[in-house]
């Protein structure tokens, strides 16, 4: 099967006051139809820039696609005319962002915004678009859709606004849905409702999903495969179970280790042990040096780590770490 989405060696640069920085440094991702790819990593690691690049929304300038390829069903998107990209966005690629308030227009009724999205890509009458909008609101589980269709965004709760965003995103039955931290601003109860809805839509429409999140719990329940990003690179990639059960990159291990997991066994203790920590912070892009970008925070770093950036190696479960590569090589011999 050929992949629905095939991103290869993507490089994105930004002109900043510190000079040109590389926000994405050779990112490769593949996504099969109907599959969910989870993308995790701390803030600033390039998750959103990856999403924006796929949608052709990198602000240029200051941004620049410095190399690589993005193919949707075989069609190259890098360098495609803006007209074509606009056509693909909203029709073939749906998007959901973290804060629905900023992506919904505050001065229009939500029903009109959904209808507008339909009219943009489909040849239907206004009345038909409104009827569809109503159906969509029902599909995404908005209670009283007949009333809510005429509401303004600020009259809805965060969870309902996110449902409206999802209604817009799926209004034209996209093949790919990109959800960038769709539940970060929401309560867990509402988060559960939104994930339930995304799974439901996926079952019904067979849409592939890129779920960007920093929540490993969300990854566990939503993702088939996972890409872990650090400082503009994919540092580990593989099936969700492999990543969660046997993380190979020290960064992935750290990310999983520092989660304060709900655990009745722990809750019963008089005193809980401290959480595992990853020391330090993600380095700013303009200070990235030659070697492994994680070296300053890595407790396992060795000499070569500071000199040579480790390539992503391995099929199925790929890892970008010198130590892992050495261990894998000695296992093979």
């Amino acid at each position: 099967m050929s992949p629905l989405l095939d991103v290869r060696d993507l490089r994105v640069e930004f002109a900043t006051r510190h000079g040109t920085v590389t926000a994405l440094d050779g990112v490769s991702l593949r996504l099969e139809p109907g599959e969910t790819l989870g993308v995790v990593g701390e803030s600033g690691c390039g998750k959103s820039i990856t999403a924006l690049a796929i949608m052709g929304l990198i602000p240029m300038p200051p941004g620049r696609i410095a190399g690589g390829s993005i193919r949707l069903d075989g069609e190259e998107l890098i360098g495609a005319p803006e007209r074509r990209l606009r056509q693909l966005r909203g029709r073939d690629i749906g998007m959901i962002f973290q804060e629905p308030m900023t992506s919904l227009n505050p001065v229009f009724r939500v029903g009109d915004q959904i209808a507008e999205a339909i009219l943009l890509h489909q040849d239907v009458s206004r009345d038909e678009a409104r009827t569809r909008a109503l159906e969509l609101l029902r599909t995404v589980g908005v209670p009283d859709p007949g009333q809510r269709i005429d509401a303004y965004p600020h009259e809805l709760s965060g969870g309902l606004r996110q449902r409206v965003m999802i209604a817009i995103a799926i209004s034209c039955q996209p093949r790919l849905l990109i959800a960038d931290e769709p539940t970060t601003a929401l309560d867990v109860t509402v988060q559960a409702q939104i994930f339930d809805l995304i799974r439901d839509i996926q079952d019904r429409l067979g849409v592939a999903v890129i779920l960007i999140t920093h929540d490993m719990g969300a990854i566990a329940e939503m993702a088939d495969r996972v890409a872990v990003m650090y400082a503009g690179r994919v540092v580990e990639e593989g099936p969700a179970d492999a990543i969660l059960d046997s993380p190979a990159h020290p960064y992935t291990r750290g990310l999983i280790g520092c989660i304060p997991a709900i655990d009745p066994a722990l809750a019963a203790l008089d005193r809980l042990p401290p959480l595992a920590e990853i020391p330090g912070v993600v380095p700013p892009l303009h200070l990235l040096g030659q070697g492994c970008a994680f070296a300053d925070r890595c407790i396992e770093a060795v000499d070569i780590c500071r000199k040579v950036a480790p390539p992503l190696t391995g099929r199925g479960h790929a890892v970008a770490c010198h130590l892992h590569a050495a261990a894998a090589a000695s296992e093979e011999s």
Partner: peptide, 16 residues
């Protein structure tokens, strides 16, 4: 409703 690492999609988990 709280997410947890051992609730897996691969094991058929579906957070209702």
């Amino acid at each position: 409703s709280a997410p947890a690492l051992d609730r897996r999609k691969s094991a058929g988990y579906r957070r209702k």
